[in-house]
Design a protein around this nucleic acid. Structure first.
Length: 778
DNA sequence: CGTGCTCACCTTTTT
DNA sequence: GGTGAGCACG
């Protein structure tokens, strides 16, 4: 049943390659624990690698060691990571040690990409064809919506998103519809959860499609139902290696255990203190019970930290000590104390961003007793993305180069997904989801009712919707205009399909985008976002060129490809704590340490003590990102969802060991000062801040001051001649990604002061202006 | 069928 | 406070 073993043809190692991998080279400079972790190749090994202890180095050296000592060929190693980025990095670093032999590491990749490869070879055994499509979350949700509609489930009371979430969780735990524990689906649509899950799985099979969770789930079904197939992989994979083991979910864990069960040569590397993905199914328990699952396992602790100063390490260690249920590590360093971790209370969110921005400017300028920083040495790590905005705006104002990490990624953007849907439909007429997505994009007069009708006919006859459409256009079931539109669309589709073989696929893509009217529709829009989208499509066409065939491209897109954003430039990075995992910076800002914000109230509400501990690990991850300086801040007042709220400092602030921390407050509030009222920690229960702030006058002033300072809270401009930065709404838009800031800024000197109104003179044109929105420039 | 309005939503994210 | 989804209306 299996496909031919074409993958055994990886290049054999050449003598010159092996010669490069002299043990003396790659083992040099490892400390005793690291070396032990590299050399313990046989039997189960758990490497507990604390933050900054050289984990990646150990991982890559271990693989290189196994190869260099001839224990296995590159294609006999299974090495799994969570992200493509991690996989790429590992491959590069191994290549650095052992040279081109690393090309043969055929089974180094993410859980999903490896599972997808295995599934391609045995798809028939689980009721799929080997050319199955991989659906992303968007497609998945739309399919579930269809199922709900077909089953007459009230989509208002029982949103598709909710069921999608449930199914995801179930799949994360390795539960097929048959194996769903009783009562699991009870909460959804009057006990119909399980039935709907089953129907959804059937639909996927009909569409010859998988969602992300299925990739692993089908692997489990495959291995459990076909011992011969499993045995084949036992034979193949001589050594297993898993990165970020603390983040594995149950399905991944079961998958690993099945694969490792025969040879037991499995090495898992992780840190229970850095487990921050519990909310998406990660089970810290997997790491806690490793020794039970693999009797005789060797546990190696990497505890020497090479990254941070001892004050930073001390602060982080003290904080994480408050968690129960740890495996326990004692990190140490020979690095000097450095600066203590600075904790500061400020008046409000705006003061916080001002403080951070000022300190960044100072750090970049450097001083006698402080090193001169580059912008890229600095990161701002927030709990949630809504906190990013304040910093972004401040940085725009002060012209501090910065980069917001995250946001919709290239291949998740609507226009890219539309383009892919065209390709998918050209490639396979069975792709109903692709049809649905683009049949009326751009608008060609085939509305929702028509599409629904087609879907219904298709379902009744058990045929793909394109086939149904072909039939329908021959009848007079549709209004004449709709029918013409539909048959034109089908005609276009046929033409593109005919060209698909003859044309290089980037050319095909261009042609489809032109002839479908997609680019024309965008050009007509004239908005800056439409411009961006056109550029994205150009980028797409370019990226396609790197692939031999359309099939290869589409396969890659769904699992592996993410366009590397240029990262080399010198700018401050703004990102979430989750995104910061695995990174490090000389100077790290950790704003928003307020009860309810961080730790997140929702996390505590939903998962209680467990959630709180995960939040604490997040705090630990945050602090340990810093090499030299960490600066924590919290605000006494903060706008959350447009409402002013009073805040209490995070409990994490109090858990920091005093010996490693220096605390101060501008508000007199830290420790209980003026302006505070005791109240519940939930921000939406908080009394609104002073009355003046909710008055219409305030609101108007705020609108007028557009992204500028608080009128009531601005720094006092003492006199004339001060230099200020000015912002105001303007027609010249400043664009960052998809977001547009209507903002113009510049520096001017104050010539007159009247309350909050300043008259400012600008050097260049001799221009004078009265403004009510400004920031003082130091 | 397309547009404008109201209303609920509002952590973290990879594949 | 901002936004996207869903509904009523033209």
């Amino acid at each position: 049943m299996s496909a031919p073993d074409s993958f055994e043809t990886s290049p054999a190692p050449r003598i010159s390659d092996l010669a490069r991998a002299r043990p003396a080279d790659y083992l040099d400079g490892l400390n005793p624990e690291q070396r032990a972790a590299v050399e313990a190749t046989e039997g189960p090994v758990l490497v507990l690698a604390g933050a900054g202890t050289g984990k990646t180095r150990v991982l890559t050296t271990r693989l290189a060691h196994i190869l260099a000592t001839g224990r296995a060929k590159p294609w006999e190693l299974l090495a799994v990571t969570f992200t493509n980025k991690a996989a790429r990095e590992m491959r590069e670093r191994i290549a650095h040690i052992i040279g081109p032999q690393a090309e043969g590491l055929r089974w180094l990749g993410t859980f999903h990409s490896i599972a997808a490869q295995i599934l391609r070879r045995h798809a028939e055994l689980v009721g799929l064809k080997s050319n199955y499509t991989i659906l992303d979350t968007d497609d998945q949700e739309r399919l579930i919506k269809q199922v709900l509609e077909a089953e007459n489930v009230d989509a208002k009371r029982w949103p598709a998103k909710h069921l999608a979430g449930l199914i995801d969780q179930w799949k994360n735990r390795g539960w097929t519809p048959d194996r769903l524990p009783a009562g699991e689906g009870a909460g959804f649509a009057n006990n119909r959860g399980q039935a709907l899950y089953r129907i959804y799985q059937d639909r996927l099979r009909v569409l010859n499609a998988c969602d992300f969770g299925d990739l692993l789930l089908h692997n489990l079904t495959l291995f459990q139902g076909h011992p011969d197939v499993l045995a084949e992989y036992h034979e193949r994979f001589r050594y297993l290696l898993v990165d970020e083991y603390q983040d594995t979910n149950v399905a991944q864990y079961l998958w690993l255990r099945l694969l490792a069960q025969k040879r037991q040569n499995v090495c898992c590397v992780g840190d229970d203190d850095q487990s921050i993905y519990g909310w998406r199914g990660a089970e810290v328990d997997n790491i806690l019970r490793f020794e039970r699952d693999f009797p005789g396992a060797k546990v190696i602790r990497l505890e020497r930290n090479y990254r941070s100063t001892s004050h930073i390490l001390g602060a982080a260690s003290g904080l994480i000590a408050a968690n129960k249920g740890r495996l326990g590590k004692t990190l140490w360093t020979e690095a000097p104390g450095g600066e203590k971790v600075i904790v500061r209370g400020v008046w409000d969110g705006e003061a916080e961003s001002r403080l951070v921005a000022d300190e960044i400017e100072r750090a970049v300028r450097g001083s006698a007793d402080a090193p001169k920083r580059r912008y890229k040495d600095i990161a701002i790590l927030v709990r949630a993305s809504f906190q990013m905005r304040a910093f972004e705006e401040r940085f725009v104002l002060l012209q501090i180069p910065h980069k917001v990490i995250g946001g919709p990624r290239f291949f998740e953007r609507a226009e890219i997904r539309d383009a892919h849907a065209y390709l998918r439909l050209i490639q396979s007429e069975d792709d109903d989801l692709a049809f649905e997505r683009i049949v009326n994009t751009p608008k060609r007069g085939i509305g929702d009712t028509t599409v629904q009708k087609l879907l219904q006919i298709a379902r009744l006859n058990g045929v793909p919707v394109v086939a149904a459409a072909r039939e329908v256009v021959r009848t007079d079931e549709l209004a004449a205009r709709t029918r013409t539109a539909l048959s034109n669309f089908l005609r276009d589709l046929d033409r593109w399909r005919a060209q698909a073989g003859a044309l290089p696929h980037p050319r095909l893509m261009e042609q489809v985008l032109e002839e479908s009217g997609y680019t024309d529709a965008l050009r007509l829009e004239k908005s800056p976002t439409a411009q961006t989208r056109l550029e994205n499509l150009k980028e797409l066409v370019q990226s396609m060129g790197a692939f031999e065939t359309l099939e290869a491209y589409l396969e890659h897109v769904s699992l592996v490809l993410d366009l590397e954003r240029e990262s080399g430039d010198d700018s401050v990075q703004i990102m979430t704590l989750h995104q910061a995992k695995g990174l490090e910076f000389p100077l790290v800002f950790l704003p928003g340490w307020e009860e309810g914000v961080f730790p997140s109230q929702r996390s505590i509400d939903e998962t209680g003590e467990k959630g709180l501990e995960e939040e604490r690990r997040l705090a630990y991850v945050g602090i340990t990102r810093a090499r030299e300086e960490a600066r924590i801040s919290f605000a006494a007042n903060r706008q959350v969802y447009g409402r002013w709220t009073s805040q209490l400092p995070s409990r994490f602030v109090d858990e920091l060991p005093l010996a490693h921390v220096e605390a101060s407050s501008e508000t007199g509030y830290y420790g209980g000062g003026p302006g505070m009222q005791q109240h519940g920690s939930r921000w939406d229960e908080s009394p609104s801040f002073g009355a003046g702030y909710s008055s219409p006058g305030w609101k108007r002033a705020q609108e007028r001051s557009y992204r500028g300072s608080h009128p009531g809270r601005q720094q006092v401009i003492e006199g004339e001649g001060r230099l200020v930065a000015v912002s105001e709404p303007s027609s010249s838009a400043y664009r960052r990604g998809d977001r547009v800031f209507h903002m113009k800024f510049g520096y001017g000197a104050v010539t007159a002061v009247d309350g909050n109104k300043l008259t400012v003179a600008f050097d260049k044109a001799g221009e004078k202006k009265v403004i009510d929105s400004f920031v003082e420039k130091a």
